[in-house]
Write a protein that binds this DNA or RNA. Structure first.
Lengths: 408, 408
DNA sequence: GTGAATATCTATGGAGCCTGTAATAAAGGG
DNA sequence: CCCTTTATTACAGGCTCCATAGATATTCAC
């Protein structure tokens, strides 16, 4: 993850405070700015366009002030007037809505088999996407070329230019450190050390964040998927090489060097070799490694005893690493994502049974509801988080939607 | 973790919240309140008393406004004037300091062998403490009685009454859930299910929080001890029954049911029985279980091969559980606390060696610098955090130090 | 000891923002 | 066409902040 913000550590005589000093009072114009941003936020989070009266109720300001604020927001282009709804008693009130189309963000999934770029508006709605197929043997420069093709396709389909983007987040396999550098990769031999942020920055004039793909998938599930609103969760990527990502206290946990959720590196868990139990099954004979697992899950579902035993063995090993994380973190929820989660109807009960003996309280386990776009969507979520922070912080407030890139 | 505040409950019954959305702008008086709190915070976190000019520089307000604000704060009793420092050029400026003595908090450690209560001022300085010895066989009501004796002793020594307390946090062994109930205890047979918050609330008219003891120790290390300022850390309680607590993103991680850091429950780690490797040593023959470990560490330090092997075995098991947490969370630091940490000179290198093969990056490991008061100190820290939140949030701002319990 | 230099404090005027109230405008129903 | 209901507009009043200028207190140089 890039964008290292080093908060000052304020020391009192004895105590190191957890909350840094933030100056947020001040000028009268500051107050107006705060009220403006507050109104904008209320409008942004409302499901439907709001009338001034509704806005008055929700912001606590007087009608006159809200009127002023709304006029300024409209003039600056942040909000738009909507046709008043007829059929109400009395004089119909003007309605205003947040203009979700004044800015866009880009989420990119740079995977082993595909590159996917999605363009969303400020509400997180997907406007368009671009997809380019690659494979394990695609060289680094070709993969980077594919990234640009996917981005261009998505932008063209969305009818937008790179200058319309307010933020970009790309997800990559491998460990991504605080500086946005990909430090360790298993799947792609020449991918380690790639300078993604710098590369993308050559043509994308906005803040760029690089993050691990599983982490972005976890974020997507927490924002848009099956874990909506859950504060503490473990995202389990189940596939040939399982992995994990954590949402703690509602935020993505990045770790000191980016290497979180790597419990599978411990030999006792058997995560490195556990897929072999599935591939060695009779039900998988002759199939490619990618297809083997699905065949075995299908066979297990159909009642094949050997396949069921293989699934149980796989689940047993998966449970070892999962239990370590669950016992450490006591999350509310475990989300099953990744390729094998499509066979969650077979895998989930097996995992539940295997976790039982280890855990004090087996958390709720749910299969992912997002498809293979989850990483790109999570990238868009993270970029939108960043936009939000810039937009609603008084310090770096974006006053004019025309030039949002000007951070701080 | 609980926050018992009867006034809160009454208000909730009476007041129907009109605005679900959090409002933070608003009135002109609100702006003044914000500026006042801001100035108070700057004064509170300054190392030395400040002049008006310095305050002007740090708050960004004009001299006139700061003058007003300071006059009000002084009149309300939050700050005090200090004798001007002579020897400066020009007219000497008045200096003001935050009055750390207007409020106090209480941190309580309800342990197996002792009950310790510390009274601190608002800067976290320990004013007085009270200590009562108990043991494993002390019955529940006797232990609760001991808690009151420790509290009373600390209050008497501090020259304060219960009504002077702005917050109380008690640390207890066992798992403490979100409601503040002690749900699972190993050491004390009749302690599970004790209603600590309700019990303490009978005579302490302020917000009361109950938390697990290791968690409070971790917090103390992050605020006052060896981990000052570290955002992500694993606190390892090494003793006959090892445990762990986590600070993530600068905050105590409580977990969904409070059972975090329980990786030792997995049989493969061997945490439940690993102390036996030390106690079985020749160096420990005849010693009580409490003393055995220290004797073995001493022998290992002196060169006893058998003792060194026992320490290595202990460290090997400790490393298994620690590696699971480190690989999961990728913390910046691991803090060694608990009884055995006094022999950190022997244990720490052994643990480091044992972690090496498991971890990608072995985090920094440091022994605790706080003594056995760490749990009570951590309690005071948590209570102070809560005071801070009430003090500096606009919603529940404490306007008058005379009656701080009245939140909002 | 006296005056210059420096920095703080005190007081006043002006501007901006929010609030509340009264008057005006716009729709639907009878 | 008039009445009811609701939204908008206009204006006075109060509060807070800022800028400026003059008064005050201390140190330093001679």
């Amino acid at each position: 993850m890039i964008r290292l913000d080093r908060r000052d550590i304020i020391q009192t005589l004895l105590i190191v405070r957890s909350t840094p000093v933030q100056v947020s009072g001040g000028d009268l114009q500051r107050l107006r700015q705060q009220n403006t941003l507050n109104s904008l936020r209320v409008l942004r989070e409302a499901r439907a366009p709001l009338t001034l009266t509704e806005l008055v109720a929700q912001t606590g300001l007087s009608r006159a002030s809200v009127g002023d604020v709304v006029a300024e927001l409209q003039q600056r282009g942040w909000i738009a007037e909507v046709d008043p709804t007829p059929g109400t008693l009395g004089r119909p009130a003007k309605r205003y809505r947040f203009r979700t189309d004044v800015g866009h963000v880009l989420g990119i999934d740079i995977g082993v088999h595909k590159v996917l770029a999605v363009v969303t508006d400020l509400a997180g709605r997907v406007i368009a996407s671009g997809r380019v197929a690659v494979d394990r043997h695609t060289a680094r420069h070709e993969r980077l070329e594919a990234v640009w093709r996917a981005i261009d396709a998505a932008l063209v389909a969305a009818g937008r230019a790179a200058s319309d983007l307010w933020g970009v987040t790309a997800g990559s396999t491998g460990v991504v450190n605080r500086e946005g550098l990909v430090t360790r990769v298993h799947d792609l031999p020449d991918w380690a050390g790639v300078e993604l942020a710098g590369h993308l920055g050559q043509r994308l004039p906005c803040p760029i964040t690089i993050e691990n793909d599983s982490k972005l998938a976890a974020l997507a599930e927490q924002r848009l998927g099956v874990a909506a609103g859950v504060q503490d969760l473990v995202y389990l990527h189940v596939g040939r090489r399982p992995g994990a990502a954590l949402i703690l206290n509602g935020r993505l946990h990045h770790g000191f060097s980016g290497a979180t959720g790597e419990v599978g590196l411990m030999e006792v868990t058997g995560w490195r070799t556990m897929a072999g139990h599935l591939e060695g099954c009779r039900a998988a004979v002759g199939a490619s490694p990618e297809e083997a697992a699905r065949l075995v899950f299908d066979a297990a579902r159909a009642g094949d005893r050997e396949a069921q035993a293989a699934v149980d063995t796989y689940a047993h090993h998966l449970a070892l690493g999962t239990a370590a994380m669950v016992l450490t973190l006591d999350p509310e929820l475990v989300v099953l994502g990744g390729g094998f989660s499509r066979s969650a109807d077979v895998l989930l009960p097996a995992l539940n049974r295997a976790l039982e003996p280890h855990c004090v309280r087996v958390p709720d386990i749910r299969p992912s509801t997002l498809g293979e776009e989850c990483v790109a969507l999570g990238g868009a979520c993270l970029a939108l988080d960043d936009v939000d922070e810039r937009l609603f912080s008084l310090e770096g407030a974006i006053l004019d939607p025309a030039a949002p890139q000007g951070v701080s």
